[in-house]
């Protein structure tokens, strides 16, 4: 993909983000932050690319950095989604 098509995706996604986030009910702003935390850890894609460079038997600096980044992003992915799920499960309607 060339730079302009990537930039187009980015700009359009900013607009989508703007409208989607305004539609989030204020009562769920804390879960919103927790889930955005989890999804921003999609940076794990870059970490995986780094963690597969060179040879496994001779770990290069880039591979070390990648593996550490995989750990950090995984903490966020599992922790972020799990804590969001835990919070959302608490929101209940009045039982009548």
């Amino acid at each position: 993909m060339d730079f302009i098509s990537i930039l187009s995706i980015f700009v359009l996604a900013c607009f989508v983000g703007y409208y989607v986030v305004w539609s989030v009910t204020p009562a769920l702003h804390t879960p919103l932050m927790a889930v955005t935390n989890a999804i921003s850890s999609v940076i794990i894609v870059g970490a995986l690319v780094a963690a597969t460079t060179g040879m496994a038997s001779h770990i290069s600096a880039a591979r070390w950095l990648g593996l550490i980044a995989v750990v950090l992003a995984s903490i966020n992915i599992f922790g972020g989604f799990a804590v969001t799920e835990r919070m959302l499960a608490m929101y209940k309607k009045k039982d009548k």
Binding site: I6, V20, L32, G46
Partner: peptide
């Protein structure tokens, strides 16, 4: 942008606007 990865770009834009709006 570095990785030319649409999932990362879409997510980044979503999270970036979310935090800015909050």
């Amino acid at each position: 942008f570095t990785l030319h990865n649409s999932a990362m770009i879409i997510t980044g834009a979503l999270v970036g606007s979310s935090g800015a709006i909050l």
